[in-house]
């Protein structure tokens, strides 16, 4: 079924149609949450909250990009989770590794790649949440600037500057571990 049709029926209260939308987007929403939070169980909670809020609020969806609308809800759910994670910092970053695809031209060994993943995780966690969200949406989830502006409810200029500053900080953080780059 087309996405528009699924949304229309979900708005009428058809749970099966809504769950088909969940099937389509849960991987993206979960990964966005995981990279935002650096914590698998918090990401699971944020994802579930996202789809529950989306189901309850789908009547308010007025067309446009459904994905951007959903990501916006997910970003809010992540903000709530971040708040509760801050209250128990010990559990904040978990041990679930951040995996990288093997680099074809200069394959690092497995241990090196794992370490690099850990470093990226730490570097992301060190970013202010606004910059982290913008960089994740752009460079990990592959959204364009306009979509990111929709998700974050900010102007293109703000998006540009958040991506710019976020990447610069990430680069600075990763350069401290220059030996990890082949």
């Amino acid at each position: 079924m087309e996405e528009d049709e699924l949304i229309k029926r979900a708005k009428e209260g058809d749970l099966d149609c809504f769950n088909q939308l969940v099937e389509r987007y849960q991987r993206e929403v979960y990964n966005l949450s995981l990279r935002m939070l650096g914590n698998a169980s918090a990401a699971e909670d944020a994802s579930q909250d996202t789809f529950l809020s989306a189901f309850r609020g789908i009547g308010k969806f007025r067309g446009g990009s459904f994905r951007a609308w959903l990501y916006r809800i997910a970003a809010n759910a992540c903000r709530d989770q971040l708040r509760s994670l801050r209250r128990r910092p010990a559990t904040s970053i978990d041990s679930l590794p951040l995996e990288l695809e093997a680099d074809q031209p200069s394959p690092e060994d497995f241990a090196m790649r794992r370490e690099l993943g850990e470093e990226i995780k730490r570097a992301l966690a060190a970013l202010p949440p606004d910059q982290r969200l913008a960089v994740i949406l752009r460079d990990i989830e592959g959204l364009d600037y306009r979509e990111i502006a929709q998700v974050t409810g900010s102007s293109l200029g703000t998006v540009k500057s958040r991506i710019n500053r976020g990447r610069a900080r990430l680069r600075h953080h990763l350069e401290q571990r220059r030996e990890l780059f082949p």
Binding site: E28, L98, E99, L100
Partner: peptide
């Protein structure tokens, strides 16, 4: 590097 982060 960020492009290479895999989806879980």
């Amino acid at each position: 590097l960020l492009h290479r982060v895999t989806m879980v």
